[in-house]
């Protein structure tokens, strides 16, 4: 097989090709699409969903699924902002470490149930999401922390931009890309990363070959929680408010984006680059309905159709894996 045909058979290539076609079509319908302001806004919309997608990607490669990350993200975000206000603390690094740790703890709790009791990840994460959201809204509070009570340091951080040709590009893009590079290095260049793939392909074989499956499960779900916590706080610093009911329904979007990017829900398959493309595709479609003069209420239908078509294509690709 030549290098070119190998490249053509990769699902990332297909996603990229579709992406380019979609962008060209949108550009024809409304040329305003190609304005730098619009493109930069689009990139900015990728950041939070993208970081969450990277967390779900790792879980999916390990053969699991995670629907609890939006709950962890919102808990980490809300608790951190409340703690900052209570302490009158103005900083950026410490709060983000705090939010990441809150997410990490929640993720480790998922791992505990999944590994110790061999429970199905979907059920565990459905339960833990309900537990975390219930505790947050029931014990901590239900009121939105608006811009007037948000820590100014967070707002300043979230709105930092760089000027490119008169248009402002959010610096948060580079945080997203940095995390993506780290995740890529982790998944492809470290033994622990290879263990995630091995575990997802066949847990029993991975165990017999000598991978520490317990460590892998804790690593995967811990990492997923940590990334979700980080993304949660980043989200609130980018939109200048902290809403304890935020991120409802994000699990659908993010899982859709990861599947769009070519990851297999059966585990063992998926890439960081594909996920980035999948996230871009999803935000592109969601954000471009308005620019294509389609009523916004159609968003759910369009996204749902995209999920179904993308999963149908992956099912067709993986058809030999089934009976």
């Amino acid at each position: 097989m030549t290098a070119v045909s190998k490249l053509l058979r990769r699902s990332e290539t297909a996603v990229l090709a579709i992406l380019i076609v979609v962008m060209l079509v949108i550009g024809v319908i409304n040329p305003a699409f190609w304005q730098a302001d619009n493109l930069f806004n689009l990139l900015r919309a990728n950041v939070v969903i993208g970081i969450m997608a990277l967390s779900v990607l790792t879980v999916m490669i390990s053969g699991g699924i995670d629907v609890s990350f939006p709950a962890f993200a919102v808990a980490a975000m809300y608790l951190t902002v409340i703690a900052m206000n209570a302490a009158g603390y103005q900083g950026v690094v410490l709060p983000f470490i705090g939010a990441t740790l809150i997410g990490l703890l929640c993720g480790l709790a998922n791992a505990f149930f999944i590994h110790t009791f061999r429970m199905i990840p979907l059920i565990v994460t459905l339960g833990s999401a309900s537990v975390v959201r219930g505790l947050l809204l029931g014990l901590v509070g239900t009121s939105i922390i608006n811009i007037d009570r948000m820590p100014p340091s967070l707002i300043a951080f979230g709105s930092s931009t760089v000027d490119i040709g008169g248009s402002k590009l959010s610096l948060m893009i580079f945080i997203y890309l940095g995390i993506a590079v780290l995740m890529w290095l982790f998944l492809t260049r470290t033994m622990a990363g290879r263990a995630v793939f091995a575990y997802g392909d066949d847990a029993e074989s991975a165990k017999r070959v000598g991978f520490n499956t317990r460590r892998t499960v804790y690593l995967v779900y811990g990492l997923a929680g940590a990334l979700a916590g980080f993304a949660g706080l980043l989200h609130s610093s980018m939109i200048w408010l902290a809403n304890p009911r935020d991120f409802v329904g994000y699990e659908l979007d993010v899982i859709a984006a990861v599947v769009l990017g070519g990851a297999s829900i059966f585990g063992g398959r998926g890439s960081v680059f594909g996920t980035i493309l999948g996230v871009f595709m999803l935000t592109l479609i969601k954000n471009s309905l308005i620019i294509m003069r389609i009523d916004n209420t159609w968003q759910g239908v369009v996204v749902g159709c995209v999920i179904v078509i993308a999963t149908a294509l992956t099912a067709w690709r993986d058809r030999k894996a089934l009976v």
């Binding site: 699924i65 659908l252 899982i255 149908a312």
Partner: peptide
């Protein structure tokens, strides 16, 4: 049909169609 014929995993298929049905509700 999506699950039995197209062989999409039930989680993903119903996640997608659920989104479509809710989307039609919005429309």
């Amino acid at each position: 049909l999506l699950i039995a014929k197209v062989k999409i995993t039930p989680i993903l298929a119903t996640l997608g169609t659920g989104q479509i049905f809710t989307g039609f509700c919005m429309v």
